[in-house]
Amino acid sequence: MRYAKLAKADLPKLFQSLKGYGEVFAPVEERGKLFFKKVEDLKEVKLAYTRTLLPPKKLFLQPEEEIMSYEGESYTEKLDGRKAVLFGVHACDINGFLKLDRVFLDAPRDEYYARRRENTLVVGITCVPDKYCFCTSVGSGYASGGFDLFLHDLGKEYLVRVGSGEGYRLSKQDYFKEAGEAEVKLAAKLEEKRAGKLRRKINLMGMGDLIETEGKEGWEELTAKCLACGTCNLVCPTCQCYDVSDLLTLEVRKGTRVRRWDSCMLKRHALVAGGLNFRPTVVERTVNRLSCKVGEEVRCVGCGRCTVYCPAGIDFVEMLSAVRGEAR
């Protein structure tokens, strides 16, 4: 990997170069809400932040998008290959991209996701963890790939890790300086210090089996307050499920096909032809959701969103600790 140094005073120069590549989307804070939004100026960007409401995956797999329009037998796909930049992404969310990439970039390739992902530069940045973060327990506290540039805050300057050819081209701009062993060592030390602040831990040893064998009564107690609203899925950086609908016009032969983020906590996710639902209860849906996130493989990146934004105050980490048999 190539390493470079960028003085904080030169960050506006990098921002200008990124704007030259495409539209820049970055975290902003408006009325106490943090979210990724198109920005024109670095001043709009919240560089030090905890987490955004929706994960930045929303740029690649859009919450709701028209994927094609059709008339009779013919159709036109709506593919978006605009160049864009995601600026200020945290390690957990970048690790979320890597998990989604396996689903949408590996065969069969999802062209809608792929074109946006491949035409978007990802610039990572050091995060500001809070008491809900547990990325270090799920191996997502550090991004080893999945970005073009990653900016590690060293105080007055950034250590810049270069993760792609496009990132390499950018790092050849004259405002970057060379960096090496000393800066990498310092960045690793600071990252470790930051990780040490994460008090939340989750023990996933044998978790898939624990989830599978937890009794119905236990689950009913753990899900008693669940409203089955789908928020946990909708704010998750690694939830990949979507629903597809055809919106007909009165001419009937014409229409548009849209897809929308789905949630496995909702009725329709497991509803099949004939009206059979193979996961009719909240308990079954919860078991499925948790198995998907931390069962056979770890798909959770420890961002804490499902806990922070749950309207019923259900805590993901506490729920799994209870399943293990620790303090319920």
């Binding site: 809400k33 979210f35 409401l53 609203c229 789908g230 909708l234 929308r260 329709r268 309207p311």
Partner: peptide
């Protein structure tokens, strides 16, 4: 057959229940 919360989250609204409002969205 899904709750208002779905369309609310897709619009990236902060949750009104978490702000202490009696929201019947779910």
């Amino acid at each position: 057959d899904y709750p208002v919360c779905v369309e609310c989250k897709l619009r990236e609204n902060g949750c009104l229940m978490l702000e202490g409002k009696l929201c019947l969205g779910p």
